[in-house]
Design a binder for these strands. Structure first.
Length: 485
RNA sequence: GGCGACAUAGCCAAGUGGUAAGGCAGAGGUCUGCAAAACCUCCAUUCUCCGGUUCAAAUCCGGAUGUCGCCUCCA
């Protein structure tokens, strides 16, 4: 597989340090609020990477941390009059609720910052011992940025340029404005831990360095996170870890692009954000997940409810085709009539293309394009009287179905029983449109009677009435069904 | 100010040297009591603009314009 490495800014062949063992560390959330779509994107992107690596046969150790102590959590706790630990616990639980709905698999290891204080203290002491860090009279510890030669290599920054733009808070006792905190002395009333420098708590960047080192050998094969973490967070992690160990921290740095609203970054500080809950109030989680995968993970993704509705049409079409395949495969008799070999070849190509897309820097958008090609192929066979009854057709239906299972398991979508999903999607759309399913069913029953009596005038009148409610009637051999127009 | 990314049809979006995937919308057709769905066909001689390299460029190089991001907590 090829992966775009932020370190070096180009796609590279992905080669793990240890054969088929892969270590992957992704920066998780700071647990102080509900997650927004940006978190959803990052989680889904790395979930797909995790799934794909496992699919291709790697033995992956996936670590995703929780930052459960930091300024924002403390601030939030003070606002609502609770303990910081309670806030963190609450929002970690809420995070799981969202992630489970989005079908994001649990990582193998989910370390929490507060459970690794000793490791972080040890790392800090080690860095002081190597003269890469220093403590101050008030009990803070800072990393000496200028003592680490490679500083700026990930984000492509020049240390002197940074210096000129650096701001210094007068309350800080930094030797250099670029230095960043490894350990922060506690202010009265703040959660704190004993340390050689007095009561305090770890700086944000420290946890990833300490916790990744604890659970897997460095260098990490993959380190990931949102694009905004590359500087300063990941740059600082590199400085800490590499200064301490003398080894590279991570070989492949993978960063996902932002979610934007009207082409502007969505962020808490701008206030233009939607939480995952906001979306799932209206749309199915699978629709959101599908939407997130329709764009390459590094591109900015412009979110809007209109775009989500479009995505919904896409996923509906895929499931509708899968439902059709299910129906076809329920037949028990198949004819030995000839089946065009080129259709089989066409599917061979689709299968190959899907893999190529995923191999090329996890191009889920491209891969989904090929899913649609498979879907259309299924539709073409189902449409043709002879093909759909032939053994060749059956075999290709089965192949399409089996491949969709594999593709779906990698992408984390298309895994539901199609008919069930379609009903759920319809009810979801009906709820959004304010349609009462029971009332619709009543009208459909009345229409059924009218049609039985060949009273098409009445039948059409009922359909018009339903149409006025935004309900579309579909007559099928199995009876009438409905959908939201 | 420093650093960086992006610019592909009405909209969304793949495509990083070999002659423009896919989705949505739209048009025509098959099917249907009429519809809907599905399927078929059509829908970018061209990839923001201007130069250059090359047998060959959306893809590489230079410049212009525009949009966005990082440099401060942020996925």
């Amino acid at each position: 597989m090829r992966l775009y490495n932020t370190l070096g800014r180009k796609k590279q062949d992905f080669i793990p340090v240890n054969d088929n063992k892969v270590s992957m560390y992704v920066c998780g959330i700071t647990a102080y609020d509900l997650c927004h779509i940006g978190h959803a994107r990052s989680s889904v992107v790395f979930d797909v990477l995790y799934r794909y690596l496992r699919h291709t046969g790697y033995d992956v150790t996936f670590i995703r941390n929780f930052t459960d102590i930091d300024d924002k959590i403390i601030k939030r706790a003070n606002e609502v009059g609770k303990e910081a630990g309670d806030i963190a616990e609450k929002f970690i639980n809420e995070f799981y609720v969202d992630m489970d709905k989005l079908a994001v698999l649990r990582p193998d290891i989910e370390p929490k910052c507060t459970e690794h204080i000793p490791e972080m203290i040890a790392l800090t002491e080690h860095l002081i011992g190597k003269d890469h860090a220093y403590s101050t009279p008030s009990g803070d510890v800072y990393f000496k940025v200028r003592s680490f030669e490679g500083y700026g290599k990930l984000s492509g920054r020049n240390i002197d340029d940074l210096e000129s733009g650096a701001r210094v808070d007068p309350s800080e006792e930094k030797q250099d404005p670029l230095d960043f905190a490894l350990w922060k002395s506690a202010k009265p009333g703040e959660p704190s831990w004993e340390s050689p420098w007095g009561l305090g708590r770890p700086g944000w960047h420290l946890e990833c360095s300490a916790m990744s080192e604890k659970y897997v050998p460095l260098p990490l094969d993959i380190h990931g996170g949102g694009q905004d973490l590359s500087f300063p967070h990941h740059e600082n992690e590199i400085a800490q870890s590499e200064a301490a160990t003398g080894k590279p921290f991570a070989n492949y740095w993978v960063h996902n692009g932002f979610v934007q609203i009207n082409s502007e970054k969505m962020s808490k500080s701008l206030g233009n954000f939607f939480t995952i809950r906001d979306i799932l109030d209206k749309f199915l989680a699978e629709t959101l997940r599908y939407f997130l995968l329709t764009m390459h993970y590094r591109s900015p993704l412009d979110f809007s409810f209109d775009a989500l509705e479009e995505a919904e049409k896409g996923i509906k079409r895929v499931y509708a085709a899968l439902a059709q395949v299910d129906v076809e495969l329920e037949k028990s008799k198949w004819k030995k009539s000839p089946f065009p070999e080129e259709l089989v070849t066409e599917f061979d190509e689709i299968e190959k293309s899907w893999k190529e897309a995923m191999e090329d820097d996890m191009n889920t958008a491209g891969a989904l394009g090929h899913v649609f090609s498979a879907i259309r192929l299924a539709g073409r066979i189902a449409e043709d009287k002879n093909l759909r009854k032939s053994e060749g057709g059956r075999d290709l239906f089965i192949r399409i179905q089996e491949n969709m299972k594999v593709w779906g398991s990698v992408l984390g979508i298309f895994e539901r029983v199609p008919a069930e999903f379609l009903t759920e999607l319809r009810d979801n759309r009906a709820a959004r449109a304010g349609i009462d399913p029971a009332k619709v069913q009543g009208l459909l029953d009345a229409r059924k009677d009218a049609r039985k009596n060949k009273d098409f005038e009445k039948s059409d009148a009922i359909r018009d009435e339903l149409a006025a409610m935004n309900v579309e009637v579909k007559d099928t051999p199995q009876g009438a069904t409905w959908d939201v127009a």
